[in-house]
Amino acid sequence: MTGAGTWSIAEDDHRKITEHLAALLQESQARCALVVDRTGQMLANAGDALKFDPAAFASLTAADFSANDQLAKMIGEPEFASLFHQGEKESMYLADVARRAILVVLFDQRTTVGMVRLKVKQTVTDLSRVFEEMFGRASQGGGAKAPGLLEGAEDEIDKLFGD
């Protein structure tokens, strides 16, 4: 491998992810759920409208998870598969999805961390399947790999960066 590579998320994959998030919210009574990739990009969200900058939130989530991964290794654990941040009114539960993404659930006093943790387990299994399929297709040369979207777009790229 020479670089980080490229992948893409198809509309159908995006729809499946959003459906799993919506099901989780319904069962757990959480406020909203987001999926962020390990490099800090927001992939999907469901539930209450976000009142914060989603890009900033996603980058901090990935950094939070990465830093905790390293802390886990220092104490002899392969990883922390989930993290819980408790606030006075709002709390966050974060869970690893197939080492590819992070599921973030925001919830308040309408539910409990126990309930969220319980329901997240099923969602992680469902989302892991979606991601494994996406990346499985990528390794076979189709699906999640970028299908040369910008092939032959040099002129457009030149124009974009021309002064």
Binding site: S8, I9, H14, R15, D37, T39
Partner: peptide, 15 residues
């Protein structure tokens, strides 16, 4: 790892 999101029509890259 650049990511092309066909749902939001975005190309995301990390520098």
């Amino acid at each position: 790892m650049s990511m092309i999101n066909y749902a939001s029509r975005e190309i995301n890259c990390k520098l």
